[in-house]
Design a protein around this nucleic acid. Structure first.
Length: 321
DNA sequence: TAGTGTTTAGACGCCT
DNA sequence: AGGCGTCTAAACACTA
């Protein structure tokens, strides 16, 4: 049984899918969003295997970003020039992975067509188009590139909310607090909790984009995403739910409502996929099992769990520490 | 021009 | 067998 060394992955392919690797990179960032180049960088820094054949895997990675609904594109602010957009995790993608492990993906995160349509024509979009169109001189808000015929789901940015989708990955709650060895927290590093505790995925992105978030948004949120009503109401001043900590893969609810200075922030719409079986805020109990809709970071191992088949895999935490 | 983003297509393995 | 998820390749468009 080979024990992991610092460079254990140097000559072999890490047991993570590109989705996992991308999710790791994004989760590891302070703002929960990264430009493509930084995602590349993260992967190459952590996994020497990917320092070669860059064209191949980077093409695949880009494909995944575009193809998978769990990744959302966030436009750059005018004062942050550069190539490409930022990429973040869809707040509803958390449950993709089992036990918070990046080695196994529970299910594919996919927006429904109706959700794409709803997003596209949402009043929220109108709001932001109206108030913040200046952020997009190019006007390319998600390249609406015709009908989606991809069998596995629309890959274009149609229906994505270029501004709003940027909650930058409300991370995933892990029911029961179980820390899978391949969980993001262990994979990325010890400061993960600190990052998560201090970061405001939603608001940081809002700030990043320079958007004011008026209270009137609450009503819009309620009309668009009734299932997040609790969230919007809470953000309007109602105290946050008692169980506001969702370790290890979650963001404190406080983080959603308060900025770094402890100020209460207004509502921010979170286009969480409607899930009839869930409560107002999916996964807020922190004890959910089953079809939780919280963002559980990923664990992706599409080709079987190495814990089962190939023996105990190398512990990523040992690589990253 | 290089990097970025989208889309299509084929192949493979796993699961039901 | 069929569905699904992933990987790879490639073509193409857009943009800094």
């Amino acid at each position: 049984m080979p024990r992991p060394g610092k460079n254990s992955y140097s000559d072999q392919k890490p047991p993570y899918s590109y989705i996992s690797l991308t999710a790791m990179a994004i989760q590891n960032s302070a703002d929960k969003m990264l430009p493509l180049s930084d995602i590349y960088k993260f992967i190459m820094d952590r996994f020497p295997y990917y320092r070669e054949n860059t064209q191949r895997w980077q093409n695949s990675l880009r494909h995944n970003l575009s193809f998978n609904d769990c990744f959302i594109k966030i436009p750059r602010r005018p004062d942050q020039p550069g190539k490409g957009s930022f990429w973040a995790l869809h707040p509803d993608c958390g449950d993709m992975f089992e036990n918070g492990s990046f080695l196994r993906r529970r299910k594919r995160f996919k927006l429904l067509r109706s959700e794409h349509m709803a997003c596209k024509s949402s009043p929220m979009m109108h709001y932001f188009h109206h108030h913040h169109h200046h952020h997009h001189p190019g006007g390319k808000l998600g390249t609406a590139s015709g009908p989606h015929h991809h069998p596995a789901g629309p890959a274009s940015t149609v229906g994505r909310l270029p501004h709003f989708q940027s909650y930058g990955g409300i991370t995933c709650a892990q029911p029961g607090g179980f820390k899978h060895p391949f969980a993001i927290e262990n994979i990325i590093g010890r400061d993960y909790k600190g990052v998560m505790a201090s970061g405001l995925p939603l608001t940081s992105v809002m700030h990043h984009l320079g958007y004011p978030v008026p209270a009137q948004l609450s009503s819009v949120v309620n009309s668009m995403w009734p299932h997040v009503g609790m969230l919007s109401e809470s953000m309007g001043g109602v105290p946050v739910p008692a169980s506001s900590e969702y370790a290890p893969f979650s963001v404190s609810m406080k983080g959603l409502y308060h900025n770094a200075n402890g100020q209460t922030l207004p509502a921010v719409p979170v286009p969480i996929k409607p899930t009839p079986s869930l409560g107002p805020m999916p996964g807020l109990t922190g004890l959910q099992s089953g079809p939780a809709q919280l963002c559980s970071p990923a664990s992706m191992m599409e080709k079987g769990d190495p814990l089962e088949g190939k023996g105990n895999p190398l512990h990523p935490a040992l690589l990253l520490s």
